[in-house]
Design a protein around this nucleic acid. Structure first.
Length: 863
RNA sequence: GCCCGGAUGGCGGAACUGGUAGACGCGCCGGACUCAAAAUCCGGUGGUGGUGACACCGUGUGGGUUCGAUUCCCUCUCCGGGCACCA
């Protein structure tokens, strides 16, 4: 996203990809490493509101700046394939594909809930709602139902879930998260018949615990449920409660943490098997979007129902034998919800879970009041956004013809680029040139749809477009099947669900419209850890929070504020972060031990510390890598980013360590130049390959260095190729350089061994620090550019050793070291271990009961 | 609240398949060079006790499995990510 400047997360992400690209290229692969801009979205509108500049200009300026930054970092990107999603050349295909989906019934219209700011008269993103209020106006946000377009991702739920089992290139945790998100759930859909006001109906509810049906003591429906509306119409108290829920949060995390509350509707439904009257309640914890928007309440065996029943005095009737453990309606116990044999359930008594569910489902089915059903947690994807800076939805509203798709030959619907949003609604609604259009069917006056598409649409297929960015007649062509699926996709773990699931869905749909050779877009997924930094903020009077970049802030050290601060900073790392992080939003500065005191450089006044969190635009805590590049060069920036933490884990930013990376590069440079300043030499490997070294075998120190060099090469190859742990590859190269520095060459053959070791360090690090190694490779006497060299092969002969060092344990504790021949048999190793003087001391008078030998590693003597 | 991760010296991290905990780097301490400082180079650096050889303790908490656990299982605590309109 062209946010303005690169931040460390970008550097980290693209360095991982660049290291891999360069490594794979040297290993003979045909590598495409493209770059593009996910250029629509909210931040451009926010910038426009703040600065009065059209989002297009802000976006294009940012792209130009960031492109220069990417180039300065030396990423080997194919700029001939560059694309930006805000250009008609790209988004026209969003529109084209949307129309195909409309034809196929994958895209459809229904109403959906949005956050409505009644003062600005505008729809707010969840991010723009702070404590239930509009971020700019501070007005309480209302929920509104408006018509929107949806994509039927639920029709693909089964396939999206099943395919996860055949994606070995994806991390388990991401597959687990997607699996849970899709949320396949097998159970029973039950019908509670009712007759209300002379009208017959059935209240449907889904449950995975049909075995507990005889324990139902109430039903709860969502506030948006028709029965709730019906009750509200006749009861002001219910109406008030439903109204209150509508003003409540729309975000699941807030819904789930709010206090469970409800109100009786006064309506009854009948139990489908016993005919008993069951009271219907409205519950604020029932989601309209899941199942049928209603749940059967079995307080005896469901924790939420239990809590609800206790609060409102509803009966709790156990119907499952909790295997001898006590049951009391006083307090919930975890085993209440476990499976068990049925009791107090009439003819079902004694059945276990599976048999009971089967029997209940069969009986319900025979009465037409229920059947087994699979329910999904996944909901259809709403793509309408009431925003200007996005891809126009190609629809025309005609008074006579209704909703009319824009004909294909009128695509693209071009978004005007010179509008400046002011925060009150979508400026497209005030743009007559855009709005007024003639109806494609009746040719009468009509109005364009002003909603734009969710930016997740843009990012759901851009990777396909890189294969054919020049095609102006189709979204994709046969080149897609050559390059795709993406061999290595790299992204933050925060994309584990939404982006990656939408992209998988969209790729399937596109494959049906424009066939290509695969269903899954990303063969291998690498989730890089996030880059974290400190957060500083002030709360404004309106409740709005203003964030300050850490660079604008001075942390107060152990000075006037005293030793308490100092102690906190030098306390236990992890736990300390915990306490600091927990303060965010509460604004407490009186928490003595966790507090970090800081002032804004600009005005010297204190700012609040918000913990250490992901670098983000919204928290204004990104680090500008440009200063790093300017001061130390791209190689240092790349090396530091790769070395500071394993790529898959979070990286807590700190300015320390950059010097170390820079120092290492200087040491490498010096080591090579010390070597070549002693006169011409060449790698010992050439002479070994060309018929030994003229009769002189390698000395033991030479063989040792050569062994370490080739071990290092093997490790770097494995770390970059298989493990993707760039940090340990760098550590191994550092160790080898340390060994080279300690090796004082005397002979020409010594220098040949050093020469080879230096070549391994230089070539091995070249994917990470390409600039300095390019120069050093030349200095080591090579005419060909390093980027065009093939990766070096490990000489297995160099790895051979005559003896190995092993450790000896007594009862699992380290007691001695022995050196044995590499091919020593177990008897020899055992004898050597038992003979060790130090080991003898610990054997004492005990009896040796067992000796465990791990070849070439360890001996454990159990006494 | 639910789902998914994580926790190892003063700090970032290493230990890849259950087998030497702390590689590598930062910081710190000592030394060399220098009039001095910086830079650079050399040495040391988990904790406790001991002159010392060495011993004991030690991978968030508490338990378990094992000859052996940072690694596997269970429990708890804290932190990070996601929760559908930030991207």
């Amino acid at each position: 996203y062209p946010s303005g400047r690169l931040h460390m997360g970008h550097v980290r992400n693209y360095t991982i990809g660049d290291v891999l690209s360069r490594f794979m290229r040297m290993n003979g692969k045909n590598v495409m490493q493209p770059m593009g801009w996910d250029a629509f979205g909210l931040p451009a509108e926010n910038a426009a509101i703040a600065n009065g500049v059209p989002p297009a200009k802000w976006t294009l300026d940012n792209i130009a700046y960031m492109k220069a930054q990417l180039k300065s970092l030396g990423f080997a990107l194919d700029w001939s394939r560059e694309l930006a999603t805000c250009t008609p050349q790209y988004y026209r295909w969003n529109q084209w594909l949307f129309l195909r989906m409309l034809e196929k019934g994958i895209a459809y219209q229904k109403t959906g809930v949005v956050n409505w700011d009644p003062v600005d008269k505008t729809v707010l993103a969840n991010e723009q709602v702070i404590d239930g209020r509009g971020w700019r106006t501070g007005a309480p946000v209302e929920k509104r139902e408006i018509p929107m377009y949806y994509l039927k991702i639920t029709a693909y739920a089964e396939d999206l879930l099943a395919a996860l089992d055949h994606m070995p290139g994806w991390p388990d945790r991401v597959r687990a998260m997607q699996s849970n998100w899709i949320g396949r759930s097998e159970g029973v859909r039950l019908g509670f018949p009712y007759e209300i006001g002379g009208e017959r109906g059935v209240l449907y509810a889904f449950t995975t615990r049909a075995d507990t049906l005889m324990g139902v003591t109430f039903c709860a429906v969502a506030p948006e449920h028709p029965l709730a509306s019906h009750a509200a119409a006749g009861d002001p108290a219910v109406a008030a409660f439903v109204e209150e829920c509508k003003r409540g949060p729309a975000i699941e995390s807030e819904l789930a943490t709010q206090e469970k509350r409800g109100i009786a509707t006064g309506l009854d439904v009948r139990h489908p098997l016993t005919g008993k009257a069951i009271p219907v309640w409205v519950g604020n914890y029932v989601l309209m979007s899941y199942g049928d928007g209603a749940v059967m309440g079995v307080p005896a065996h469901d924790e939420r129902d239990f809590e609800f029943a206790q609060k409102y005095g509803l009966p709790i009737e156990p119907v499952i034998d909790v295997a001898g453990r006590p049951y009391s309606t006083d307090a919930w116990q975890p085993w209440y919800s476990e499976h068990g044999r049925l009791i107090h359930s009439g003819k079902y008594d004694g059945l276990d879970y599976g048999a009971a569910v089967d029997a209940v489902a069969r009986d319900l089915r025979s009465q037409g009041l229920g059947e087994k059903r699979t329910t999904w947690r996944l909901r259809d994807w709403g793509i309408s956004r009431q925003r200007y800076w996005g891809c126009p939805i190609p629809i025309i509203h005609c008074g006579a013809c209704g909703i009319v798709p824009v004909p294909e030959d009128q695509l693209p619907v071009v978004l005007p680029v010179d509008l400046v949003p002011d925060g009150s609604g979508n400026p497209l609604n005030k743009d007559r040139d855009f709005l007024s259009v003639s109806c494609p069917r009746c040719k009468g006056a009509a109005r364009r749809e002003t909603d734009t598409m969710d930016t997740f649409v843009d990012s759901s297929w851009y990777f396909l477009r890189f294969a054919c960015p020049d095609n102006d007649r189709a979204a994709v062509d046969s080149r897609v099947s050559y390059w795709l699926p993406v061999d290595q996709y790299i992204g933050g773990i925060e994309h584990a669900i939404l982006h990656l699931l939408y992209a998988r869905f969209w790729t399937r749909v596109m494959g049906e419209i424009e066939p290509f050779s695969f269903k899954e877009p990303f063969a291998n997924l690498f989730t890089q850890g996030m880059v974290l930094n400190e957060v500083y903020f002030r709360k404004q009077g309106s409740g709005r929070i203003e964030y300050f970049n850490p660079a604008q802030v001075t942390k107060l050290g152990a000075g006037a504020e005293g030793a308490e601060q100092h102690a906190a900073e030098h306390g236990k790392g992890g736990a300390e972060h915990g306490r600091r992080g927990a303060e965010h939003g509460r604004g407490g500065t009186e928490h003595g031990r966790g507090a970090v005191r800081a002032i804004l450089k600009a005005d010297g006044q204190p700012v609040e510390f918000g913990g250490i969190v992901t670098m983000s635009k919204s928290k204004n805590n990104g680090v500008d890598p440009q200063s790093l590049v300017d001061e130390f060069g791209a190689d240092t920036a790349r090396l530091f980013t790769m070395f500071a933490a394993p790529p898959e884990q979070t990286l807590e930013w700190s300015d320390e360590g950059v010097q170390g990376a820079f120092r290492f590069i200087k040491r490498l440079w010096k080591a090579v130049h010390d070597h070549i300043s002693r006169g011409p030499s060449e790698s010992v490997s050439r002479r070994l390959a060309g018929g030994t070294t003229g009769g002189t075998a390698l000395t033991e120190p030479q063989r040792a260095l050569r062994r370490q060099a080739h071990r290092t090469l093997a490790k770097i190859t494995d770390d970059l190729g298989r493990r993707r742990t760039v940090n340990t590859a760098i550590a191994a190269a550092m160790e080898l350089l340390n060994a080279i520095s300690k090796f004082a060459p005397q002979s020409e053959q010594d220098r040949g061994v050093v020469h080879e070791a230096l070549e391994i360090v230089v070539l091995g690090l070249s994917p990470i620090v390409p600039h300095v190694t390019h120069a050093l490779w030349r200095h080591l006497g090579h005419a060909r550019a390093l980027i065009d060299e093939p990766w070096m092969a490990v000489d297995a002969h160099a790895l051979e050793t005559a003896s190995v060092a092993m450790v000896v344990q007594v009862n699992g504790k380290l007691r001695g070291h022995i050196t044995v021949a590499a091919d020593a048999d177990e008897g020899t190793v055992r004898a050597a271990a038992l003979a060790d003087a130090h080991v003898q001391k610990f054997l004492g008078s005990g009896t040796v009961r067992k000796v465990i030998i791990v070849p070439s590693k360890l001996v454990n003597i159990v006494v």
